[in-house]
Amino acid sequence: MHPKHLKTKTFNYGDSFEAIKLSKDLSGLDYLKGMQNGEIPEAAAVSALEISIHEIDFGKANFEFTPQDFHYNAVGTVHGGVISTILDTAMGCTLMSTLTKEFTFTTLELKVNFIKAVTQNTGKMIAVGKIIHAGRTTAMTEASLIDESGKVYAHATSTCLIMKKAQ
């Protein structure tokens, strides 16, 4: 690529390993609130994409981003991987917000439906997470990516494994 076509993006991110270490003694909600208030580094992946916490509470983790050109794919819309990332983040953190300090989770399966194209003209987008079912070892979650008027642009479901934290 010719240098005149290149843009530069820099970003700051926290120490992921420090965040993981801090999570060992915190409930999921306390961990997420620590990220929200800047006491705990947020995940580098969400920092790179400029995704941020919109709202955190027990059983609720909503994230937001404003589409920019670095989110785009080759056909001029926000890349499906970016949309999948924010939806996965909202679903996982919604589940995490309900877990005690002894437990963590991992995503086993993720399904995303892309409903409407997301572009810079769409404005701020919010991924709203919800728990469909949470048992002792598995959970099912969902999230919708909406604009500020509530119009849905994408919807996802996920199956998660709930497990004891490694000591």
Rank of each mutant, 00 (worst) to 15 (best):
H155E: 12
D25E: 12
P67L: 06
A48C: 14
E55R: 05
H79N: 14
F63T: 00
A143Q: 00
S97I: 08
H79W: 08
N37V: 01
L32R: 02
Y31E: 12
S47A: 15
G76F: 09
L145Q: 01
I51G: 11
A74M: 11
T119I: 13
T138N: 14
D15G: 08
A139S: 08
L145V: 07
V75L: 07
F58C: 00
E39I: 02
M163T: 15
E102R: 10
I146E: 11
N113C: 09
G150V: 10
V128H: 02
I20Y: 15
T159K: 11
A45W: 12
T98E: 05
F58S: 03
V75C: 05
S158G: 15
K101E: 11
K21H: 14
P3E: 13
H79L: 03
G38T: 09
T138K: 12
L87F: 07
T77D: 02
N62Y: 02
M163P: 01
L95C: 01
Q36P: 05
P41H: 13
Y153W: 04
S27L: 08
F17K: 10
D30K: 04
F11Y: 15
F103Q: 15
Y31W: 13
S16W: 06
A61W: 04
T137C: 05
S158I: 02
S16E: 13
I131K: 04
N113F: 10
P3H: 12
Q167W: 00
R136G: 14
T157W: 02
C160Y: 13
V75P: 04
D57N: 07
G34I: 02
T89F: 03
Y72E: 06
H71P: 01
L26N: 00
H155M: 05
T107F: 01
D69G: 11
I20G: 02
T85E: 10
E142L: 03
M1Y: 07
H54W: 05
A48H: 11
T119V: 09
C93Y: 05
G135L: 08
V82I: 14
S144G: 02
I162S: 06
F58W: 08
I132C: 05
D88F: 03
K164D: 00
I40N: 00
Q36I: 03
A154M: 09
V118P: 02
Q120M: 13
L6V: 11
P41M: 15
S149N: 12
R136T: 09
K111D: 00
N121E: 12
S144R: 14
D147E: 04
T98V: 04
L110Q: 07
A19M: 13
M140K: 11
L87Q: 01
G81S: 11
N113T: 06
K4M: 08
G123R: 05
A127I: 01
Q36N: 12
G28T: 09
S47I: 07
N121D: 14
S27V: 10
M35R: 01
A61Q: 05
S23F: 03
V118D: 00
F105Y: 15
G81P: 12
T107W: 10
V118M: 01
I20R: 11
Y31S: 07
S97V: 12
L145G: 03
A61R: 06
K130S: 04
I115N: 00
K130F: 05
K130P: 05
K164Y: 06
G76V: 04
G135I: 02
